[in-house]
Design a binder for these strands. Structure first.
Length: 255
DNA sequence: ATGGTGGGCAGCCCA
């Protein structure tokens, strides 16, 4: 089974690329972030015609998440319980015997900003929720745009980025505390090329120069992680004309 | 080089 995560940065713009990509890669489950569409405008018919079931949690202009799957999805949850938030960043569903939690973690803007404090509060509430989810669903996958580069291998120029949003210690600690409750970053279970990133700024030729960060992650519970047989980043999708600023990340599982 | 580019919605916000 192949499961993927992709921040599409507007599903309206990226739908043709997504449909091409689904045809070429045939993933079983796909978590999308930054769909930027209200639910009434979600292209469910086009995605259905491509052979995928879909659940979505969107809003106008900002945020928005969706899960696509070849087999039916059930038990959708659209927010972190007991965390009051009007930003649509969370979608969990069950599929093919696995529980999937799709996340668009807040960007955080810059340490010290209101958005940064919101990011840390959000991550704290997420951890409380995921601990309970893990107890209920041992076969749990948590994937999406985490907006945190786990360590310096995931940063093109760690010295230039010291203390910046996406790499700051409080953010990395929050991610570490999440992993501690029982998840593994499956990308690092395998040999990977150096300088492997999943996001590159649109500006300053960052993709051409491979000035990126690895902030799109697939976390597997301790039960599922040993079933993972590979994980890769699809840079080809990022090189397309009018591409998203994120590349898809794909993991294979022997399930 | 404190800019640069892209998406969304209508002169900025957000990434």
């Amino acid at each position: 089974m192949q499961i993927a995560t992709w921040n599409v940065n507007s599903l309206r713009v990226r739908l043709p690329q997504l449909l091409d990509w689904l045809g070429a890669n045939q993933p079983d489950i796909v978590a999308l972030q930054e769909t930027k569409l209200p639910d009434a405008a979600f292209p469910a018919a086009e995605i259905g015609a491509a052979g995928y079931h879909v659940v979505f949690n969107g809003q106008k202009t900002y945020n928005g998440v969706a899960i696509l799957a070849r087999t039916p999805l059930s038990g959708a949850v659209i927010e972190i319980p007991s965390f009051d938030d009007d930003q649509r960043r969370v979608l969990a569903a069950s599929c093919a015997g696995v529980r999937v939690v799709n996340l668009y973690v807040p960007n955080g803007q810059a340490p010290g900003s209101d958005k940064y404090e919101y990011k840390l509060r959000w991550l704290k509430a997420l951890r409380v929720w995921l601990r309970a989810e893990l107890a209920q669903y041992p076969r749990l996958l948590v994937l999406g745009d985490f907006n945190i580069a786990p360590d310096d291998r995931d940063v093109h120029d760690p010295e230039a980025w010291v203390g910046s949003v996406h790499v700051s210690e409080p953010e990395r600690e929050a991610l570490g505390e999440l992993l501690q409750i029982g998840f593994l970053d499956v990308f690092r279970q395998f040999d990977q090329p150096p300088q492997a990133f999943s996001w590159w700024d649109y500006r300053a030729g960052a993709f051409r120069r491979n000035h990126g960060l690895r902030i799109d992650l697939i976390l597997a519970s301790r039960v599922l992680a040993p079933r993972c047989t590979g994980c890769r980043i699809d840079r080809l999708a990022r090189s397309a004309e009018r591409a998203s600023d994120h590349a898809p990340v794909i993991a294979s599982f022997d399930i």
